[in-house]
């Protein structure tokens, strides 16, 4: 019985939670949101550029994109964050003073770019090549066809995967902890961790966990909602049973889609 009480107290000590709560709300939550949202914006933007480079017809764009992706997707997030956050800290100190956030955001963004780039690339490449050919045949340039026709379709398909990546980003933002944060810079995890160390039980850390879930679970459900809607859209789009399926790429002669494709 004693052990059960101890166990309960380790995780559900209301007193500890109540003490940590104000810091979590005032400091931890805003900081976690700042880290995740800015990195998400940068990662999405750069990810799109990386995806475009990855499918470029120019080798000198494709190759660097490939290498970049391999490196930043292959390294543990904490290694990247330490290498950039600590490695560049002297430069950072000169530019914006003793604030690890810019470098933390940079590291998180670079990691997100690699993953989001792959997500967008696979989405764009899943679009029927006929769409590009059809656009080019109307007189659209390659870039106009990409921008107006291909990317909107490709991105729509991978929205769920993209949101998943945002969830990963929210969780990974806790890793800036390794860069050493001043009191006002602490994000959710660090505040939970500090409070847990002070009180000798894990309740504050559990509270931090609950905060993460409050952020990520709605996103997870948003993914499912988007996914469901896209699926349904696809189902209704096939139309009445007598309408023939338009999007099947039948066994057409495999031809390069555009003149560029042959080079």
């Amino acid at each position: 019985m004693d052990q059960l009480t101890t166990l309960w107290d380790t995780f559900f000590n209301w007193q500890s939670m109540r003490q940590a709560l104000p810091d979590m709300l005032k400091t931890g939550l805003p900081n976690t949101l700042i880290l995740s949202i800015i990195s998400a914006l940068i990662g999405t933007l750069l990810g799109m550029l990386l995806a475009m480079a990855g499918i470029s017809r120019h080798r000198w764009l494709r190759w660097p994109a490939r290498v970049y992706t391999d490196i930043f997707r292959g390294l543990p997030a904490v290694v990247t964050i330490l290498l950039i956050g600590v490695g560049l800290s002297q430069i950072g100190m000169k530019v914006w003073g003793p604030n690890p956030y810019p470098l933390g955001i940079l590291a998180l963004s670079l990691i997100a770019t690699a993953y989001i780039g792959e997500i967008f690339r696979s989405g764009i490449q899943s679009v029927d090549p006929g769409q590009l050919e059809g656009s080019r045949a109307l007189g659209f340039s390659y870039s106009a066809a990409m921008l107006l026709v291909i990317i909107p379709q490709g991105v729509r398909r991978v929205l769920p995967a993209w949101v998943n990546q945002l969830i990963a980003l929210i969780k990974d933002s806790s890793l800036v902890y390794f860069l050493g944060l001043a009191a006002g810079q602490r994000e959710l995890f660090r505040i939970g961790q500090d409070a847990a160390a002070n009180t000798g039980n894990e309740s504050a850390l559990l509270l931090a966990g609950i905060f993460y879930l409050i952020l990520t679970v709605p996103l997870t459900h948003f993914v499912n909602f988007v996914d469901h809607r896209l699926r349904q859209g696809r189902r209704t789009r096939t139309g009445p049973p007598d309408a023939d399926e338009p999007l099947i790429v039948a066994g057409e002669t495999p031809l390069p889609a555009t003149s560029e494709g042959t080079k």
């Binding site: 006929g130 769409q131 059809g134 080019r136 045949a137 338009p246 999007l247």
Partner: peptide
């Protein structure tokens, strides 16, 4: 691109924009 504006093309798979 200019040339293709003057030459219309119709495909086996229609290639309409589904979105």
């Amino acid at each position: 691109d200019r040339l293709r504006q003057q030459v219309g093309m119709v495909f086996q798979q229609f290639n309409l924009f589904p979105h």
